[in-house]
């Protein structure tokens, strides 16, 4: 397995180059020159030209043969593509269009609060949903099962916004159990995260329980479960030892796919509870056509996806002996 991981990691740069080519195509070739847009309304031609220079749109797309003939062979790389490439590899995504802040520091600053919010939210939802679905699978077809499914559908149809507004109003304002709004870095800030995390877990449960319930139902009727029961094994051990490990493949697929999005934060939660994460960064960047940020986020998420896929394969092999890594 180790050699497989090493081999896959060696492929990763190739995939990253692929990602770079795609983002380059999207942001440089298809999107084209955004200098005029960046210069803003009422901008003069000079301002636009200045932006063009700053953003590198004055350079040729791939090969700078002109510069090469003037400044030597190496200048052939003084092209949009190679700058795009170099910037990504050195994690230098320039400065944001609107805030003029360094994109890399925006990402670094936002990642911590976002992950502080999304990771507990995600794990909380996962563990609760898996546990509920395991036990629900056990009583499939019963009134309890039906009520849980109905509750899930209701939960899913409840707009997250409404839920957040209610939760904030009721638990934070009316009952004063939690702070309404705020953020502090470090452990001092933990109190600000409790309510948003709980709301996120609650909101995520409906969909997750429904998904995992289906996964569990596929397995609960499996013959090996009956075998385990016939051996005299108790229910929790049947569920957690026998069923869960078999149900891990779809769970892992879902989990690993979700991980890169943890970095995107949680837009509404962050806005309502004042967590300065990445949730709004991407949305705002799209709204403001801040291609510096969009490009950086796309790149980071893509790389996380590549790594996530590797992690998926490794996890598959870890939970299922029938999967071999070759």
């Amino acid at each position: 397995m180790f050699s497989y991981i090493v081999r896959r990691l060696l492929y990763t740069p190739l995939v990253v180059i692929g990602v770079l080519i795609v983002t380059f195509m999207l942001f440089r070739v298809v999107q084209g020159d955004v200098s005029a847009e960046y210069a803003g309304k009422n901008a003069s031609a000079e301002t636009i030209a200045e932006y063009r220079k700053e953003l590198g749109f004055d350079k040729p797309l791939f090969i700078n043969s002109e510069a090469a003939s003037e400044r030597g062979v190496l200048a052939v790389f003084d092209s949009q593509f190679f700058h795009h490439f170099k910037n990504a590899v050195t994690l230098d995504f320039g400065r944001a269009r609107v805030s003029k802040q360094k994109v890399s520091s925006l990402l670094a600053e936002g990642a911590v609060p976002s992950l502080t919010l999304t990771v507990p939210m995600f794990l909380g939802t996962l563990i609760t949903a898996v546990t509920i679905s395991l036990f629900i699978a056990l009583v499939r077809g019963s009134t309890l099962d039906t009520s849980v499914v109905v509750a899930c559908v209701c939960g899913m149809s409840l707009p997250f916004l409404a839920l957040i507004m209610f939760g904030q109003y009721f638990f934070a304002y009316k009952l004063e159990w939690f702070p309404v709004f705020g953020y502090e870095p470090g452990f001092a800030g933990a109190k600000y995260f409790v309510l948003p995390v709980l709301m996120g877990v609650f909101a995520g449960l409906g969909g997750d329980v429904r998904f995992y319930r289906t996964v569990m139902l596929d397995e609960i009727n499996a013959d090996y479960i009956r075998t385990a029961k016939a051996k005299g094994q108790n229910t929790p051990r049947i569920l957690y030892r026998h069923l869960l490990k078999n149900a891990m493949i779809p769970i892992i697929s879902k989990v690993v796919l979700a991980i890169p999005f943890l970095f995107l934060g949680s837009l509404l939660t962050e806005r309502f509870f004042g967590i300065p994460g990445l949730g709004y960064l991407m949305v705002e960047a799209i709204g403001q056509r801040d291609f510096q940020i969009i490009n950086a986020m796309t790149f980071v998420i893509s790389v996380l996806f590549v790594l996530g896929n590797l992690a998926t394969d490794v996890c598959y092999a870890l939970v299922d002996p029938r999967v071999t890594l070759n």
Binding site: R226, T227, V319, P321
Partner: peptide
Amino acid sequence: FQEPMTSLNPVYT
């Protein structure tokens, strides 16, 4: 049980 293929848990030895 009658199905030895499926009655054993595939993920345990």
